[in-house]
Each structure stands twice: as C-alpha cells, then as structure tokens.
Design a protein around this nucleic acid. Structure first.
Lengths: 245, 245
DNA sequence: TGCGTTTCTCAGAGAAATCACAGCTTGGGG
DNA sequence: CCCCAAGCTGTGATTTCTCTGAGAAACGCA
C-alpha cells in the first residue's frame, strides 16, 4: 500500500498500515548511521546490527520486512548470515552491500531469488530505490503499487527506466535518472544542493559541488526544453520540481 | 490458471487460486537454498528436505504439486525415494537433478512418465522452465496456460524451442535461447548483467561477466538484424526487451 | 576419432558519461 | 542602478562502459 503524506512524499506501508521494518547490518558504524538516517527519512522503522550474530538475533525479534546486509562482516561470512536469516524469515528480501572489486567474487546467485545488491560506495538514492523495489515485489507491501512516478505530465518508470514528458520519450543517463527520481519523489519541495549531493551521489564523492548545478542544467535541457518549466530554482535554497500548471 | 502481476510477470496458480507447492530435495544446503530462493520468487510455496527420509515425510504432510529431487542422496538411492514418494502422491511430477556423467538411459526410463530432469550444474532459468512445464502439464495448474511467450512480433515457444520474429523462424543456440527466454519473461524491465548471469548461467559459472554482453550481441544479430531493435541497452543499468513499436 | 558447433576469453575500438574548469548571466540587496 | 554572490552552461579531458572480432577450448555427434 502507498499513501501520500502532506509533504507530497509517497510512503510504502505494510498491508496493515504499519510502517515497513528494515534491518541494517554493517560493521562500520558510519555506514549503519548513514543508512539508518536515510531509511528513517523514508518513514521506515530501522534496527541495526554490527555483526552476524547480532543480525540473526535482531532479525528474530524485530522481524523486518527487508534486510540490508554487508557481505564483509567480522564474525561470519555473508552467506552464513543469509542462511541463518532465512531460517527464521524465509521470505525476507535482502539487499547486499559489497565492495566494488569483490563483485566478481562470490556474488553468484545473489540476485537470483529476487534479492539484489549494491556496491560500495553507494548512493543513498540507489539503496533506497532498490529496497523499495525489493519490498514492493516481496509482497510485504501491496503488490498493486506500481513503479511509476508521476508529476504533472512527466512520468518516470523505475522498472523500465523510461521517462516521458507529455508522452514523448526522453533518454536520460544514469546520473540524470537518479537525480530526476529524487526530485520526483519529493515534488513541490525545495531540495538543497547539499541534500541532493548527499542523496544522489555516492557517499565518498569528493568533487566540486557544482555537479548538481550541472546536472540540473542537463535535466532542464531534456525535460523542460521549449516547454513550461517544471524544475525551478529557489535562489539560495535549492531546487524543486512541480507540475507545469 | 495464470495471473499477470503488475510487473508483467506471469504467475502459475492452482485451480483454486492458491500458490503452487514445490518440495526441493537435495543434501547440499547451498543448492536447496538457491533453488528455494529462485522458486519462491516465482510465487511458489517451497519446502525443502536434505535426505530421502525427510523428503518422504515432507511430501506426506506438505503435499506438493511438484518435487525437485536430487538423485544422489546420502541415505537412500533416488529410485527408492521416488518409489516412496509415489506411494503417497501417485501423480506428482518430479524434476530430477543428476550429475552430468550419470547414466543417461536410467534417467530416460524414469522421465518417460512425464517427469523430467536437469543435470548439475544447472541454470535457474532451466530449472524454473522445466518445473513450470511439469506443473502445467500435470494439471495441477490450469491447462489453458500455454507455453508461448510473445513480445511484439517476437515469439518463443518454451515447449518446442521455436523462436520467430515477424513470422520468420530463428535458430538459437541453447544459451541464446535461455537468455532470450529470461528477457521475454521480464519484458520492459531492466535486467542487470548480474541478474542475467545468476539466472541464465549455471550456478558454478566463474567466468567473465562480459559473456552477457557477448550473448546479447549474438541475440541482436539474430533477432534485431536489420529491423527495429527490441533489445535495448540501459547504460550502467542493464538490458531490456520491449516491442519494437 | 574427427568435424562442425557452441561456449567463452581476451583485447582493442569506439561511444557515452562524468566531471573540472572557467567565463558568462542573473537576481536582488544596498 | 550597481555590484557581488549564486547560478548556468560551453568546452574538453578523463574515465567508464559496451560492443565485437578473433581465436582457443570444450562439446556433441557421427
């Protein structure tokens, strides 16, 4: 089930209307902190654990709807944790966190059961998007909820990655897509450049802050080109998207 | 009976609308895990067992619509397990898992009765496809569901392995066929290279991830050659198939 | 065993995306 | 009305991703 909050944010809820529960497992405190914050912001209930045993125990009592699991834990390897988690929660979808260079390693089969993974360093939008996808498909949330964001005559399909405005298809690059998704998930709401940078770029991004301006500019060319603009600048505050009307 | 979920995936259901039940029997935990994951993702209810006795007992109480049975179990040989299973569930179709070098003729005899087999190491797409076939033919699911996938003017018959585009027959190798089937079972949906590798290649494949690119390239030559392309690349995300229109 | 087919590795070409930099434009406070 | 900070965007270097040809190895079948 999805509801729309007063701010215009669309929230994912369980069939009984209670908030979605997510367990975050990583040994680096900075990562669990970062993720907990971002996921709480989605309106979800978060519990975190720093090792495999903690994870298994937390899963048992917290009974999460999804798990974010670092593959590199100090006490157990990722697959063992997975096995034990599954003993208690056979259907829980898992989002794995892996190091970029370990991808080839032993990831075989991880995406097979509808689970998914992201590589570190990740962007929060990516984690949130994938988690939403997993939860949506797992049936913990209402299956009828679909994957299309709509703002005015602008649509963005998270499954097919298709974007249209007024029916015309628009091709976006990966980063443009993520940026637009973030804007569209927060319509009519001013998002600061810092917020955007934190959400859309990976957490270790060390570049110039004007990439955001740059990508806003790219998006405008593709989305607002020759039409009533939907992306607006609030000088000194940030950007927002809203229906052209 | 089949229903189509919002994501466009077609699910197999029993005549009364309840999910199909599958029993998985293998002594290697990693195999039962992998299969359980993948089969659950099909929307089926899964029970697993690690040896012959467990299998017989589980079959008795779980009353599955199909069984995946490893022929090499620690406590009983495959034929005995099969015999006992059949005593309780005379009509249940069985998908045998065998080692590659197993005696082929013995299997051939067994599969005469409408059962089927795959050799280890298998690909998940293959197991799922055969299982779907068995269940479909056994009548546990609605018989009207047929075995032809259609996307635009492209058709793929899962029974005869015939593929056509715009009426013209196309010859595909085994791997190309499986890849195309996976794409066509998830039309308009971006599938990552990792997902494809996990589903289409066997679980022990340890090679380069660019085989996926290679086979996409092969498929394009055969399917999109000189026509409106149906296979599309989403740079940085994966591939998807959709009607040419 | 031998031959055609299929699968897969490797590596290079080419295309596309990302980002830094810098100069230009704009808006609004004084 | 002027000026400065904030924002916008053209250019191009660099990195990353994808495609594909060539050939080696494995396979299947006669």
């Amino acid at each position: 089930m999805t509801t729309t909050s007063p701010q215009g944010r669309t929230e994912l809820l369980r069939p009984d209307g209670s908030p979605v529960r997510v367990l975050v497992v990583d040994d680096e405190l900075s990562i669990t902190e970062l993720l907990s914050m971002a996921l709480r912001y989605e309106g979800w209930q978060i519990r975190s654990a720093g090792d495999g045993h903690g994870a298994v125990q937390a899963a048992r009592e917290f009974r999460p709807d999804a798990v974010v699991l670092d593959m590199m834990l100090p006490d157990m390897d990722g697959l063992s944790v997975l096995g034990r988690l599954r003993r208690d929660l056979p259907d829980v979808p898992v989002l794995f966190l892996t190091a970029k260079d370990a991808v080839e390693d032993r990831i075989a089969g991880l995406t097979a059961g509808g689970d998914d993974y992201v590589t570190k360093p990740f962007s929060l939008e990516e984690v949130v998007a994938r988690l939403r996808g997993l939860i949506r498909r797992s049936g913990a949330a209402d299956r009828r909820s679909d994957s299309v964001l709509v703002v005015g005559d602008l649509t963005l399909d998270e499954d097919s990655h298709e974007v249209t405005r007024g029916g015309d298809g628009i091709h976006l690059t990966a980063t443009e897509f993520e940026l637009l998704r973030f804007l569209m998930r927060n319509p009519r709401r001013v998002l600061s450049k810092a917020q955007i940078l934190d959400r859309v770029w990976s957490y270790d991004f060390g570049g110039q802050a004007n990439v955001v301006e740059l990508y806003i500019s790219y998006l405008r060319r593709k989305i607002d080109a020759g039409r009533e603009p939907m992306i607006h600048t609030r000088r000194g505050a940030g950007y927002l998207i809203k229906p052209a009307a």
